[in-house]
């Protein structure tokens, strides 16, 4: 037990980083990370299994039943493993969808930057360039759009990514467990400025969030 714990600690420490999906800071990213570790374990076992079977193939002649290989292993065994994987994927998938009430913010992308919109509580929007302010501990829906080519909105520690496609509106659910600063970036190649197309997400304690947005108004450009 202690060794498992130790391994977990080492793994998370080694995998930490501002953009690391393996260092989740919210429920959406957290569930996906768990899904990954489970699939990794399964994949490791399966790889070993295949390699052992291949190695045993060198053991000399022996009678074999074709259907054991093609049907039992090839068909049923793989169907079984795959169904479990798919089931887990669908289960997690259902839980991370944008369903139910959430705070709504907008993310408008362009070559090469981001302009975010925050609700001012009176039906208007307050814009900020390069920084998105969200309340911590609450689900947030980001409505993602693009002004020119395709980009993708991605804050790996909070959620997966969604594309920003000209002519369309996409929606991504994310949530930060605690106040803090989270790194985000575009994850769809968009030309020469792509590498630098980063942004920051600041999660505020829910009580501080309205003030943070109000403060934005004073420095915001007048659009």
């Amino acid at each position: 037990m202690r060794s498992v714990l130790f391994l977990a600690v080492v793994l998370t420490a080694g995998c930490a980083g501002p953009l690391s999906t393996l260092d989740p800071a919210g429920p959406v990213a957290g569930q996906i990370a768990w899904l990954w570790w489970a699939m990794l374990a399964g994949a490791g076992v399966l790889t070993l299994l295949v390699l052992v079977l291949v190695a045993m193939g060198f053991g000399g002649l022996r009678p074999v039943a074709a259907r054991v290989w093609t049907h039992r292993l090839g068909l049923w065994f793989s169907l079984g493993v795959l169904s479990v994987t798919l089931g887990a994927g669908l289960w997690v998938g259902e839980r991370i969808l944008p369903r139910g009430d959430a705070v709504e913010v907008t993310a408008h992308s362009f070559q090469w930057g981001w302009r975010f919109g925050h609700p001012d509580g009176m039906g208007g929007w307050i814009a900020a360039e390069g920084v998105l302010h969200i309340p911590a501990g609450e689900p947030v829906d980001v409505v993602v759009t693009s002004a020119d080519v395709i980009h993708a909105f991605w804050v790996p520690r909070l959620a997966g990514k969604i594309d920003a496609i000209p002519g369309r509106e996409n929606r991504l659910r994310l949530q930060a467990d605690a106040p803090g600063i989270y790194a985000g970036r575009s994850a769809e190649f968009s030309g020469v400025g792509y590498a630098g197309m980063t942004f920051t997400v600041i999660a505020h304690a829910p009580d501080d969030w309205p003030a943070a947005i109000a403060a934005l108004r004073d420095e915001a450009p007048d659009d």
């Binding site: 999906t21 990213a29 569930q31 996906i32 899904l35 990954w36 699939m39 994949a43 795959l82 994987t85 798919l86 887990a88 994927g89 997690v92 998938g93 991370i96 993708a152 790996p156 959620a159 997966g160 990514k161 969604i162 994850a187 769809e188 190649f189």
Partner: peptide
């Protein structure tokens, strides 16, 4: 890893 990528939630993280 291909099967992993076919699992949508994981794909949203690993894609690109």
């Amino acid at each position: 890893t291909g099967v992993m990528l076919a699992i949508v939630p994981f794909n949203w993280q690993a894609h690109d």
